[in-house]
Nucleic acid binder design. Sequence first.
RNA 1: GGCUCGUUGGUGAAGUGGUUUAACACGCCGCCCUCUCAAGGCGGUAUUCAUGGGUUCGAACCCCAUACGAGUCACCA
Length: 536
Amino acid sequence: MNYKKLADLLFPDVNSDISYYENLYPERPNKFVTRFAPSPTGFLHIGSLYTAYISNIMAKQNDGVMILRIEDTDSKREVIDASNLIIKDLNDFNININEGINSGNYGPYIQSKRVNIYHTYVKYLIEKGLAYPCFLTEEEISDIRKRQEINKERIGIYGEYACYRDLSFEEVKQKLESNANYVIRLKSPGNFNERFTFEDLIKGKIEFPSNDLDIVLLKSDMIPTYHLAHVIDDHLMRVTHVIRGEEWLSSLPIHYQLFRIFNFKMPKYAHISPLTKKEGDTVRKLSKRKDKECLVSYYEKLGIPDEVIKIYFNTLINADYESWYNSKSDNEFKFTFKKMPVGGSLFDSDKLINISKTYFSRLTAKELLDKTLEYYKKYDIDFYNVLSTDYNYSINILNIERNIKKPRKDISSYSDIKSCFWYFFDEYFYKLNRWNEYENVDNNLLEKYMEYYNYKDDKDTWYTRLKEFASENGYSPSVKEYNDSPDNYKGHIGDVCESIRIALTSLKETPDIYEIMQVMGYDKVIKRINKFVNRK
RNA sequence: GGCUCGUUGGUGAAGUGGUUUAACACGCCGCCCUCUCAAGGCGGUAUUCAUGGGUUCGAACCCCAUACGAGUCACCA
């Protein structure tokens, strides 16, 4: 068989040879080159983002290069403009790309623009007798599959099933002239009974049987499959570290074989275990279809900052990150592949919320307000208007129990700001308040309190005087005392506070009532109590 | 069914042969502080690392088997 003649028959337009590309894309000085290679099929999945984020961390940490490559070889699934959406999501998440689409000397970075490269390499393989056109139809393949299932054989095109391996030049020519559909398959030199070991950066040593499947290299539209594109692109882009999802691990024997056949240097691989979710008793990968929390935009709408998701990711990536984070150490945290989880990582929203609370509690009021305004401008313009009317008032609200050693941790998202502080604003307070839910508040007591209240008292004075006020009106100044002899009192200091709290906020649970009054100011306090006392 | 990986509490996990009567964090429970809530403090939450065998003076850690779970087996990536 004259493979050269066959190669020319199949690829008459390919004139350059592989050494042209080898020289075009020389080896790099960088020791760490990685890439994120999504296919443009819609919004970014949180799992993809997770992988991209890890690649980015490792690239930054090693002074490396991060490439963005768009894998648009599946024309059936492609979504228009999806690559722009991906870039937007990556930007929002602060993942910086050093090379891709608009920059870099190792492009093009869009696979659909690289077909001439793939064809050159496939032509080379055909010349070497390591690839061949295969005329199996879809029906024939599915018949083979059925037969293999019945006979309990391995599934796939190999051995006797690879029936077009050794067609003569004339037979191929004849098929071509009759316009038969075909794909280009690898003529796999592997033997399933031979094994090889491979070292994954995360999972360690793994043993595999060699690949003997004649996998498809070029589909019938002569567009490459992932396997071919991965090997050629990552070689020519001189990628040193392939960081990708674990779902690729099982096709590693194919990639390993392809690298050997082409005589390319193997990159290092890190296979990231998937983010999973528990549903009832079963654990499964987060799925785009079923899980709303799988979309990056879900968290944005909820008001969970990207920063928080990153911190949560960090704790999943290397479990010791959390104690570093909590210790507020100044040293930079060093991520390693070795410490990444080998099994799946369960995505725990309780934990996410907790991290979010800690994150929010560490912000200054100004930082918080600025970010909060940004959020409401987009998702609730009414509240945005209210919140931005008096900037200082809003700052003071957010400052309640914030500038202390152990700040409050009751906010886990921007949306909590509204549900925690709406009552500070008359626009909401007089519309939404729940005064009439509380029947047995002592009106008489509140009326007297309006006279008694002194805005200028500091906190200690205020509390001391409040105790006196309680005593004068038949309330115990101490809860303990009240509990010892409840019959002697109308209630205790707590009840007094509660009455004030209800009048001012219409809620039973709020932050410190003294601070609330300080922020509201004398007029607002008196006006609210007054309105409360005179409610119908 | 084949191939690969995994299995430590309610959850995420640390730990790779003796300092482990299993770290840390989340959750949960109790107590304390306290005007409520949040936070904080203190304590309780695995007599034991899927199960069974083996190696060893000694095993969560090494080996084998079993069970269960996950991933994968396309002209998708």
